[in-house]
Amino acid sequence: MDDNKEIKDKEKSMTRSEFLAYMSASFTFMVGSSIFGRFVTEAEAKAAGKDNTKVEKKDSSGGSNTDTKPKHTEQDYDPFNHAWIYLIDTNKCIGCGMCVRACKIENKVPDKFNRTWVERYHILEGRGALIDSPEGGLNGFQPESYSKVTKTFFIPKICNHCKKSPCSQVCPVGASYFSPDQVQLIDQKRCIGCGYCIQACPYSSRFMHPDKHVADKCFWCYHRITKGYDPACVHACPTGTRKFGDMTKPDDPIRMIISTERVQVLRPEMLTIPQVKYLGLDMEVR
Protein backbone atom coordinates (compact mmCIF):
# COMPACT_ATOMS: atom_id res chain seq x y z
CA MET A 1 0.00 0.00 0.00
CA ASP A 2 2.83 2.37 0.82
CA ASP A 3 4.31 1.80 -2.56
CA ASN A 4 1.05 2.67 -4.23
CA LYS A 5 0.90 5.86 -2.24
CA GLU A 6 4.40 6.64 -3.28
CA ILE A 7 3.52 6.15 -6.91
CA LYS A 8 0.54 8.41 -6.55
CA ASP A 9 2.64 11.13 -4.91
CA LYS A 10 5.08 10.70 -7.71
CA GLU A 11 2.37 11.15 -10.29
CA LYS A 12 1.24 14.31 -8.55
CA SER A 13 4.70 15.75 -8.67
CA MET A 14 5.01 14.81 -12.31
CA THR A 15 2.00 16.71 -13.51
CA ARG A 16 4.23 19.38 -14.94
CA SER A 17 6.08 17.06 -17.26
CA GLU A 18 2.91 15.27 -18.21
CA PHE A 19 1.33 18.57 -18.98
CA LEU A 20 4.26 19.38 -21.21
CA ALA A 21 3.97 16.02 -22.92
CA TYR A 22 0.31 16.56 -23.61
CA MET A 23 1.06 20.04 -24.84
CA SER A 24 3.70 18.74 -27.20
CA ALA A 25 1.29 16.12 -28.52
CA SER A 26 -1.66 18.40 -29.02
CA PHE A 27 0.23 21.36 -30.41
CA THR A 28 2.36 19.38 -32.79
CA PHE A 29 0.74 20.73 -35.88
CA MET A 30 1.26 24.29 -34.75
CA VAL A 31 4.83 23.59 -33.74
CA GLY A 32 5.33 21.54 -36.86
CA SER A 33 4.40 24.41 -39.06
CA SER A 34 6.70 26.76 -37.21
CA ILE A 35 9.59 24.30 -37.44
CA PHE A 36 8.89 23.84 -41.09
CA GLY A 37 9.22 27.59 -41.47
CA ARG A 38 12.53 27.38 -39.70
CA PHE A 39 13.75 24.81 -42.17
CA VAL A 40 12.90 26.97 -45.13
CA THR A 41 14.93 29.83 -43.73
CA GLU A 42 17.72 27.41 -43.02
CA ALA A 43 17.75 26.18 -46.58
CA GLU A 44 17.93 29.76 -47.74
CA ALA A 45 20.78 30.44 -45.40
CA LYS A 46 22.61 27.43 -46.73
CA ALA A 47 22.10 28.64 -50.24
CA ALA A 48 23.47 32.04 -49.24
CA GLY A 49 26.58 30.32 -47.97
CA LYS A 50 26.44 31.29 -44.31
CA ASP A 51 25.45 28.14 -42.59
CA ASN A 52 25.76 28.80 -38.93
CA THR A 53 22.36 27.61 -37.85
CA LYS A 54 22.91 23.92 -37.56
CA VAL A 55 25.88 23.33 -35.30
CA GLU A 56 26.21 26.61 -33.45
CA LYS A 57 28.47 26.10 -30.51
CA LYS A 58 29.36 22.51 -30.12
CA ASP A 59 29.84 22.58 -26.38
CA SER A 60 26.68 24.51 -25.62
CA SER A 61 25.10 21.75 -23.63
CA GLY A 62 26.05 18.39 -25.04
CA GLY A 63 29.54 17.22 -24.34
CA SER A 64 31.24 19.14 -21.65
CA ASN A 65 34.87 18.15 -21.71
CA THR A 66 35.36 17.87 -17.98
CA ASP A 67 32.92 15.27 -16.85
CA THR A 68 33.21 14.69 -13.16
CA LYS A 69 32.28 11.78 -10.99
CA PRO A 70 28.80 10.29 -11.34
CA LYS A 71 26.02 12.14 -9.56
CA HIS A 72 24.80 9.11 -7.70
CA THR A 73 25.80 5.49 -7.30
CA GLU A 74 24.00 2.24 -7.72
CA GLN A 75 23.62 1.80 -3.96
CA ASP A 76 21.82 5.04 -3.21
CA TYR A 77 19.70 4.93 -6.36
CA ASP A 78 16.00 5.26 -5.69
CA PRO A 79 13.84 4.82 -8.79
CA PHE A 80 11.14 6.98 -7.25
CA ASN A 81 13.38 10.04 -7.21
CA HIS A 82 14.01 10.23 -10.92
CA ALA A 83 12.10 10.85 -14.10
CA TRP A 84 14.42 10.46 -17.03
CA ILE A 85 13.95 12.37 -20.23
CA TYR A 86 15.72 12.25 -23.58
CA LEU A 87 16.16 15.07 -26.03
CA ILE A 88 17.33 14.82 -29.62
CA ASP A 89 18.39 18.05 -31.27
CA THR A 90 18.29 16.94 -34.89
CA ASN A 91 19.81 20.22 -36.08
CA LYS A 92 23.13 19.12 -34.63
CA CYS A 93 23.26 15.57 -35.94
CA ILE A 94 26.10 14.94 -38.40
CA GLY A 95 25.28 11.29 -39.00
CA CYS A 96 28.56 9.83 -37.77
CA GLY A 97 26.81 6.77 -36.36
CA MET A 98 29.00 6.70 -33.25
CA CYS A 99 25.87 6.37 -31.10
CA VAL A 100 24.84 3.24 -32.98
CA ARG A 101 28.29 1.77 -32.56
CA ALA A 102 28.43 2.63 -28.87
CA CYS A 103 25.05 1.02 -28.35
CA LYS A 104 26.14 -2.11 -30.22
CA ILE A 105 29.18 -2.46 -27.99
CA GLU A 106 27.54 -1.52 -24.71
CA ASN A 107 24.42 -3.63 -25.05
CA LYS A 108 25.79 -6.43 -27.24
CA VAL A 109 23.05 -5.78 -29.77
CA PRO A 110 22.83 -8.65 -32.27
CA ASP A 111 23.82 -8.15 -35.89
CA LYS A 112 21.26 -6.61 -38.24
CA PHE A 113 19.21 -5.27 -35.32
CA ASN A 114 19.45 -1.86 -33.72
CA ARG A 115 18.40 -0.45 -30.41
CA THR A 116 19.09 2.98 -31.80
CA TRP A 117 19.63 4.06 -35.37
CA VAL A 118 20.12 7.12 -37.54
CA GLU A 119 18.08 7.87 -40.65
CA ARG A 120 19.07 10.21 -43.43
CA TYR A 121 16.32 12.10 -45.22
CA HIS A 122 16.61 13.65 -48.64
CA ILE A 123 13.45 15.65 -49.27
CA LEU A 124 12.98 15.83 -53.02
CA GLU A 125 11.09 18.66 -54.59
CA GLY A 126 7.47 17.57 -54.92
CA ARG A 127 8.36 13.91 -54.81
CA GLY A 128 8.34 13.05 -51.15
CA ALA A 129 11.26 11.78 -49.20
CA LEU A 130 14.17 9.50 -49.97
CA ILE A 131 15.35 7.83 -46.79
CA ASP A 132 18.24 5.54 -46.08
CA SER A 133 19.76 4.02 -43.01
CA PRO A 134 22.44 1.48 -44.01
CA GLU A 135 22.77 -0.95 -41.09
CA GLY A 136 21.01 1.66 -38.99
CA GLY A 137 23.92 4.04 -39.58
CA LEU A 138 26.35 1.75 -37.77
CA ASN A 139 29.21 2.60 -40.14
CA GLY A 140 28.18 6.12 -40.99
CA PHE A 141 26.76 7.22 -44.31
CA GLN A 142 28.08 7.13 -47.85
CA PRO A 143 27.84 10.17 -50.12
CA GLU A 144 24.78 10.17 -52.37
CA SER A 145 23.82 12.55 -55.09
CA TYR A 146 20.18 13.07 -55.91
CA SER A 147 18.81 15.82 -58.07
CA LYS A 148 16.35 18.42 -56.83
CA VAL A 149 17.02 17.93 -53.16
CA THR A 150 15.43 20.77 -51.23
CA LYS A 151 16.52 19.82 -47.77
CA THR A 152 18.38 17.00 -46.18
CA PHE A 153 19.02 16.03 -42.58
CA PHE A 154 19.72 13.21 -40.17
CA ILE A 155 17.20 11.89 -37.67
CA PRO A 156 18.48 9.72 -34.84
CA LYS A 157 15.89 7.35 -33.49
CA ILE A 158 15.57 5.39 -30.32
CA CYS A 159 12.87 3.75 -28.23
CA ASN A 160 10.54 6.57 -27.24
CA HIS A 161 9.80 5.22 -23.77
CA CYS A 162 6.19 6.29 -24.14
CA LYS A 163 4.17 7.04 -21.06
CA LYS A 164 1.05 5.55 -22.62
CA SER A 165 2.97 2.85 -24.36
CA PRO A 166 1.16 0.46 -26.67
CA CYS A 167 3.92 -2.11 -26.13
CA SER A 168 3.70 -2.60 -22.39
CA GLN A 169 -0.06 -2.33 -22.64
CA VAL A 170 -0.23 -5.46 -24.77
CA CYS A 171 2.36 -7.56 -22.94
CA PRO A 172 0.28 -10.49 -21.66
CA VAL A 173 2.58 -11.49 -18.80
CA GLY A 174 3.79 -8.18 -17.40
CA ALA A 175 7.29 -8.66 -18.77
CA SER A 176 7.31 -5.28 -20.47
CA TYR A 177 6.68 -2.50 -18.00
CA PHE A 178 7.09 1.18 -17.26
CA SER A 179 9.45 1.58 -14.34
CA PRO A 180 8.95 4.16 -11.54
CA ASP A 181 11.76 6.26 -13.02
CA GLN A 182 9.87 6.38 -16.31
CA VAL A 183 11.84 3.94 -18.41
CA GLN A 184 10.20 1.24 -20.48
CA LEU A 185 11.95 -1.95 -19.48
CA ILE A 186 11.64 -5.59 -20.44
CA ASP A 187 11.97 -8.36 -17.91
CA GLN A 188 13.70 -10.76 -20.22
CA LYS A 189 13.40 -13.58 -17.71
CA ARG A 190 9.61 -13.42 -17.94
CA CYS A 191 9.16 -12.57 -21.59
CA ILE A 192 7.51 -15.47 -23.39
CA GLY A 193 8.53 -14.22 -26.82
CA CYS A 194 5.06 -13.85 -28.29
CA GLY A 195 6.04 -10.78 -30.28
CA TYR A 196 2.84 -8.87 -29.60
CA CYS A 197 4.75 -5.82 -28.33
CA ILE A 198 6.79 -5.76 -31.52
CA GLN A 199 3.56 -5.53 -33.50
CA ALA A 200 2.15 -2.86 -31.21
CA CYS A 201 5.10 -0.46 -31.26
CA PRO A 202 4.42 2.24 -33.86
CA TYR A 203 8.11 3.19 -33.99
CA SER A 204 9.52 -0.26 -34.69
CA SER A 205 11.88 0.15 -31.76
CA ARG A 206 11.44 -3.41 -30.63
CA PHE A 207 12.78 -6.57 -32.16
CA MET A 208 12.93 -10.24 -31.40
CA HIS A 209 16.39 -11.11 -30.09
CA PRO A 210 17.62 -13.83 -32.44
CA ASP A 211 19.49 -15.78 -29.75
CA LYS A 212 17.58 -15.07 -26.56
CA HIS A 213 14.17 -15.37 -28.32
CA VAL A 214 12.75 -12.55 -26.23
CA ALA A 215 11.74 -9.02 -27.11
CA ASP A 216 14.60 -6.55 -26.97
CA LYS A 217 14.87 -2.81 -27.28
CA CYS A 218 16.61 0.28 -25.93
CA PHE A 219 16.52 0.54 -22.14
CA TRP A 220 18.22 3.94 -22.07
CA CYS A 221 21.17 1.93 -20.73
CA TYR A 222 19.37 1.42 -17.45
CA HIS A 223 22.53 -0.11 -15.95
CA ARG A 224 24.41 3.13 -16.73
CA ILE A 225 21.88 5.75 -15.76
CA THR A 226 21.29 4.11 -12.39
CA LYS A 227 25.04 4.33 -11.75
CA GLY A 228 24.96 8.03 -12.56
CA TYR A 229 26.29 7.97 -16.12
CA ASP A 230 24.74 8.91 -19.41
CA PRO A 231 23.45 6.25 -21.81
CA ALA A 232 26.16 5.00 -24.15
CA CYS A 233 24.69 6.76 -27.19
CA VAL A 234 24.56 10.10 -25.37
CA HIS A 235 28.12 9.60 -24.20
CA ALA A 236 29.36 8.78 -27.67
CA CYS A 237 27.66 11.70 -29.40
CA PRO A 238 30.34 14.25 -30.32
CA THR A 239 27.97 17.08 -31.24
CA GLY A 240 25.50 17.12 -28.38
CA THR A 241 22.62 15.93 -30.54
CA ARG A 242 21.55 13.43 -27.95
CA LYS A 243 20.94 14.71 -24.47
CA PHE A 244 19.79 12.98 -21.36
CA GLY A 245 18.22 14.63 -18.36
CA ASP A 246 16.08 14.24 -15.29
CA MET A 247 12.73 15.98 -15.08
CA THR A 248 12.73 15.90 -11.28
CA LYS A 249 15.84 18.07 -10.96
CA PRO A 250 14.86 21.76 -11.11
CA ASP A 251 18.21 22.90 -12.50
CA ASP A 252 18.52 20.18 -15.12
CA PRO A 253 19.56 21.78 -18.45
CA ILE A 254 17.52 19.32 -20.51
CA ARG A 255 14.46 20.02 -18.43
CA MET A 256 15.01 23.73 -19.11
CA ILE A 257 15.17 23.13 -22.86
CA ILE A 258 12.05 20.98 -22.88
CA SER A 259 10.07 23.40 -20.77
CA THR A 260 11.08 26.53 -22.66
CA GLU A 261 11.62 25.51 -26.27
CA ARG A 262 9.20 24.15 -28.82
CA VAL A 263 9.79 20.41 -28.85
CA GLN A 264 8.10 17.68 -30.83
CA VAL A 265 7.60 13.97 -30.62
CA LEU A 266 7.43 11.27 -33.27
CA ARG A 267 3.98 10.26 -34.51
CA PRO A 268 1.99 12.44 -32.09
CA GLU A 269 -1.28 11.21 -33.62
CA MET A 270 -0.69 7.89 -31.86
CA LEU A 271 -0.97 9.71 -28.51
CA THR A 272 1.64 7.52 -26.93
CA ILE A 273 3.25 10.48 -25.13
CA PRO A 274 6.86 9.71 -25.98
CA GLN A 275 9.55 10.69 -23.51
CA VAL A 276 12.01 11.28 -26.32
CA LYS A 277 11.56 14.86 -27.43
CA TYR A 278 12.85 16.22 -30.69
CA LEU A 279 14.03 19.63 -31.74
CA GLY A 280 13.71 20.37 -35.43
CA LEU A 281 11.58 17.54 -36.78
CA ASP A 282 10.23 17.57 -40.30
CA MET A 283 6.72 16.53 -41.29
CA GLU A 284 8.15 13.77 -43.47
CA VAL A 285 9.67 12.09 -40.43
CA ARG A 286 7.62 9.21 -39.09
Binding site: N114, W117, G128
Partner: peptide, 18 residues
Protein backbone atom coordinates in the same frame (compact mmCIF):
# COMPACT_ATOMS: atom_id res chain seq x y z
CA UNK B 1 2.78 11.75 -46.82
CA UNK B 2 2.62 14.21 -49.66
CA UNK B 3 3.10 12.66 -53.04
CA UNK B 4 5.22 9.77 -51.89
CA UNK B 5 6.15 8.15 -55.13
CA UNK B 6 9.36 6.74 -53.74
CA UNK B 7 8.68 3.98 -51.27
CA UNK B 8 11.63 1.91 -50.33
CA UNK B 9 12.52 2.60 -46.74
CA UNK B 10 12.14 0.02 -44.02
CA UNK B 11 12.99 0.71 -40.43
CA UNK B 12 16.23 -1.09 -39.60
CA UNK B 13 14.51 -3.48 -37.17
CA UNK B 14 11.58 -4.03 -39.45
CA UNK B 15 12.94 -6.33 -42.13
CA UNK B 16 11.60 -9.50 -40.60
CA UNK B 17 8.08 -10.94 -40.39
CA UNK B 18 7.76 -11.95 -36.74
Amino acid sequence: MHGNEIMNFLFPNDFHVD
